[in-house]
């Protein structure tokens, strides 16, 4: 645990010693604002809630989270520091968890900085703050799931651009997996239970149910096991591909 914390600190600090942190936060806040106000018609709806804000999070994360996760391992590979890191007296799990948690913590900071939205709806009306808190938790969990995919894919390559594109594509698949676009592909031949499984693998259904204010244990388990699975894959990939 101590080592995970040390790695997390180093990783998180490295976001802030480079312009990455500031660029990321500014663009994230700007885009989430634009989506909520223009596409989501925040004022026009005349309702005191943050639905128009959270609805667009999966789509926003689709290209902004891969930008955060792409460097996690690809950069270590490119610069050779992976050799330094993995010959320190730490376990592979500590390294993987520390890096993932650092990216997730950074994402949480960016998400927390959207508090003016929350403040605005409370100023304008009387929203259900329980729903808003649940939505924030849902958004954080979904972001964690995106990041876990991204961390694993980043460990496959030393090229950050490849990591970005492949992660975005993989995330798109999971966002859309409840959608006809993906389901139609399987419909002709796959048995019903598989279709059911595929559509329940999608982020959207789980995210939607949380943003309605219902924190269902099944949704939490879904995201937790999803993250755990991808981090496990991350460990396996690094063990297998250390030499390249």
């Amino acid at each position: 645990m101590g080592h995970t914390w040390t790695i997390l600190k180093r990783e998180l600090a490295s976001y802030f010693t480079t312009p990455i942190a500031y660029v990321f936060i500014v663009i994230y806040l700007f885009l989430s604002g634009i989506f909520a106000f223009y596409l989501g018609n925040f004022f026009g709806r005349g309702q005191a809630d943050l639905n128009s804000f959270f609805t667009f999070h999966p789509w926003l994360y689709l290209f902004i989270i891969p930008a955060l996760s792409m460097r996690l391992w690809a950069e270590e590979r490119r610069s050779g520091t992976i050799e330094l890191l993995l010959t320190l007296p730490i376990t592979m799990w500590q390294a993987v968890a520390g890096k993932f948690l650092a990216a997730w913590a950074f994402m949480a900071i960016a998400l927390a900085l959207t508090f003016p939205m929350w403040w605005t709806v409370n100023y304008l009306g009387e929203p259900d703050n329980g729903v808003i808190v649940a939505s924030y938790i849902g958004s954080l969990l979904m972001g964690g799931a995106f990041l876990a995919i991204g961390a694993c894919i980043s460990s496959l390559t030393r090229n950050q651009v490849i990591a970005f594109i492949v992660t975005a594509a993989a995330c798109l698949l999971f966002v859309l997996s409840g959608h006809p676009l993906v389901l139609d592909f399987f419909k002709g031949w796959a048995p019903a239970f598989l279709l059911q499984a595929i559509s329940s693998f999608g982020f959207l259904s789980h995210f939607d149910s949380i943003t309605k204010g219902i924190i269902d244990l099944r949704d939490l388990v879904y995201f937790a096991s999803f993250i755990a699975f991808w981090l496990f894959a991350n460990v396996v990939v690094i063990e297998m591909k250390k030499a390249d």
């Binding site: 040390t6 180093r10 600090a13 050779g80 050799e83």
Partner: peptide
């Protein structure tokens, strides 16, 4: 261990980097 080419975290300062190593140790 000094790996070939002495790879380092380029965006850190030597102090922050050595501090990190010391904590891991």
């Amino acid at each position: 261990y000094l790996p070939e080419g002495a790879p380092l975290y380029a965006d850190m300062t030597p102090y922050a980097f050595l501090d990190f190593c010391a904590e891991i140790r």
